[in-house]
Amino acid sequence: MDEGVDEELLTIGAFAARARLSAKALRLYDRLGLLVPAHVDEVSGYRYYRASQTGRARLVALLRQLDMPLSLVADVVGAEGAEASDRLTAYWADVETRVAGQRTLAEYLRGRLSGRSSDMYGKFVVETVDVAEQVVITETRHTLADELPPWIEASLNRLECAARECGGVTGAPFVVYHAEVSMESDGPAESCVPVADEAAARAWAEARGRSWDTKVRVEPAQRLAYTRITKAQVAHPQILAAFEAVEQWMAEQGLRHAGPCREVYFADWEAAGPQDAVCDVAFPVR
């Protein structure tokens, strides 16, 4: 160690051994500002750490064992007391929600792989309904699955507010999936609200709708094959079984797809309980 360096400082190797981290990890944490050395030799570039930094180093290592992204690790170690604890609590709640969804998906996939999928589909009652032509105002977005639920809520709220200027809402709002929405595929998805006055809707869209990727279109009269699901079943991946049940029923009935699949929200989402019916999973058919 250079003579000008305080003897209380530890070399990166000694500090890595004490903190139970690799030197490579310490260099990464330095670059990210998570754990900055107490001293860097201007000539050699060697990093030196104080023994008192061991606690922070071990905290970073433990948070990483929770698979916490480095950006969130920085938020936690940069906070103090209750705030740091609250940030960890929020992160772990998100982890448990994700794992619960993955557990459900794993059970669903086990059913498919073991040939039990027909039993799973049997709990869904599939019917058809004829829907008249509708004028709809829409908002479209490319979005991944984790961003989809808040976007649906926000976009439908915006469109329902806008419908007041378009003669009012005349039917249940719905979301059309023009391509798959998953953790790898971003759709797009299109939120739609039926309105009464097409001319007023087009004037509204021309004046204020462009920033939302909003448009007005006429949804043709069509027949839908659908199954009704509860609020609990709307969550991903539970809803996947509902979509596949409708498609299986269509195949059995000799019906073909006549447009992209959709979710039709006919109930008050906020007021509904987990077992209340809130949504129709549907496919246009011919």
Score class of each variant (00 low, 15 high):
6 D>V: 01
250 M>K: 08
38 A>D: 15
30 D>L: 01
1 M>V: 13
5 V>K: 05
75 D>G: 00
92 W>R: 15
223 R>D: 07
61 A>M: 06
44 S>Y: 04
257 H>A: 15
187 G>V: 12
64 R>A: 08
140 T>I: 02
109 L>G: 01
123 K>Y: 00
259 G>K: 06
100 A>H: 11
23 A>E: 15
82 A>F: 05
31 R>K: 13
213 D>Q: 07
38 A>E: 15
161 C>S: 12
86 D>G: 09
202 R>H: 03
202 R>W: 00
261 C>S: 13
190 E>L: 03
197 D>M: 02
145 A>E: 07
55 G>S: 10
17 A>C: 03
101 G>Q: 14
246 V>C: 06
20 R>P: 00
120 M>T: 15
171 G>T: 10
46 Y>R: 15
85 S>R: 13
63 L>R: 10
185 S>D: 11
144 L>R: 13
137 I>H: 09
58 R>L: 08
118 S>N: 11
249 W>I: 02
167 G>H: 04
14 A>L: 02
132 A>P: 11
103 R>E: 12
21 L>C: 15
204 W>V: 03
86 D>M: 06
39 H>W: 03
59 L>W: 02
277 A>L: 10
91 Y>A: 09
166 C>M: 14
41 D>A: 02
250 M>I: 00
227 T>V: 12
261 C>E: 10
7 E>C: 02
39 H>P: 03
279 C>Q: 04
